[in-house]
Amino acid sequence: MNSRNLLVLAIALLMFPQIAQTLYSPALADIGQAFAVGPQRAAQTLSVFFLAFAFGVVVWGRLCDRIGRRPTMLIGLALYTGASILALSVGDFTALLAAQALAAFGAAVGSVVTQTLLRDRFKGAELAQVFSGMGIALAASPAIGLFAGASLVHAFGYRGVVGCLLLLASLLWLWCLQTLPETRPGNVTVPALFETLWRMLQDLDIWRSTLLVALFNIALFSYYSLGPFVFQRLGVSAQWFGYSGVILALGSGLGAWLNKRLLGRGYSGPRLVRLAAVSALLGGMGVWLMQHSVLLVLAMLLVVLAFGMAIPNILGSALVNYGDRLGTAGALFGLLYYLLIGGGLLLVGWGQALGETLMLCGALALLLAGIRQRHTEQ
């Protein structure tokens, strides 16, 4: 499989978890009504997704070092398909959360194994460019998820969302069965899990990268988690919340495009992450000031722009010192930041304060990005 075809498949596999996350957002209000639960409990759907996703990342990351990238991907996608079938048949909210957790566990394969595939094929500056270029394509994921989710919920309720994800997972499984190559190097060893974890826990660069990834994701997904209820309080239909994803995708795409351009002009990754943190902080302030108007979506553009600019740079450089154990290190790295994202979104769901959440994430990201840039320049 040539590099271009691999990148097309990799984009689809990386988009799938993002679409699975955002497709559910417009369905949260319908889930609350269908199972007679309030906004705080309905919002747990996304939190459970991230927490289960975190443990899935570890399992699939380890398996891709042990049995290979290709078989691991096929097993994970098959598990997601089965969990989606289960979600269509449940009759109470707890069972729905359990099905969602199992689906998220399976969806994690699309993140960690795909990133490992790319790290197998590309190195250094070329890898950073690949992540940046893919970021432009991935900017469409939230728009697809929110727009499609709103339309499906309007026509079929939350079950329409689950059915759509079942179809997508099945198609991806068939695509991978036909074309996905095995990229695991022949000399790969499977390092001890806890030895690698201990090494990473002592690595300050890993902690900075982990916290930065978590903060930018919490900022982004706090909108997807709280947005349906914000629009509901403003008297605007959930369908318009779905349409807002199209606007936000433009901001994310602009951030990824701007990142690629600035990298080409010699800007360093840490400098661009710091610039992204400033954008996130300003966006959070704007959302807080306009929280009583749908115009807050315009301020959210700065937040999604920051996400599109920051994440490729953080992911592209995070594991440069773990080349002999990319699958395991990638799994543990993902475990750390997805646990933080899931825990953060639980707090966001309880707090129901979008503007304050965004400002806090932006301020902390700016502090960490400044420390990271100074460390890199030393």
Score class of each variant (00 low, 15 high):
L262W: 11
A276N: 06
L262G: 13
G255M: 01
A276I: 07
L258I: 08
L248H: 13
N259T: 02
R271W: 13
A249T: 12
V278A: 11
L254Q: 15
L250T: 15
W257D: 06
L275H: 07
Y267C: 06
A277F: 04
V278I: 15
S268D: 12
K260S: 11
L275I: 15
G264Q: 05
R274C: 14
S252G: 10
L272C: 04
L248I: 04
S268I: 07
L250H: 13
G253Y: 12
R271V: 04
L272N: 06
A277C: 10
G253I: 04
G253W: 08
A249W: 14
V273N: 01
P270C: 06
R261H: 10
L258M: 07
R265M: 00
L254K: 15
G253H: 08
G266P: 11
G264S: 02
P270M: 02
P270W: 00
G269D: 13
L263N: 05
K260H: 12
A256E: 00
L263Y: 05
S252L: 07
L250I: 13
Y267W: 07
G269C: 08
G264M: 03
L248N: 13
L250P: 14
S252I: 08
G255H: 06
L262S: 12
R261G: 02
G251R: 15
L275T: 10
G269F: 06
L254S: 10
N259F: 04
A249R: 15
L248E: 13
Y267V: 05
A277V: 12
R261A: 04
R274L: 13
G266N: 13
A256W: 04
G266V: 06
W257P: 05
S252P: 07
L258N: 09
N259W: 03
R265Q: 09
L275M: 11
Y267N: 10
G269I: 04
L275Q: 04
G269Q: 14
G253N: 01
L263F: 07
L258Q: 06
W257Y: 13
V273I: 12
K260R: 09
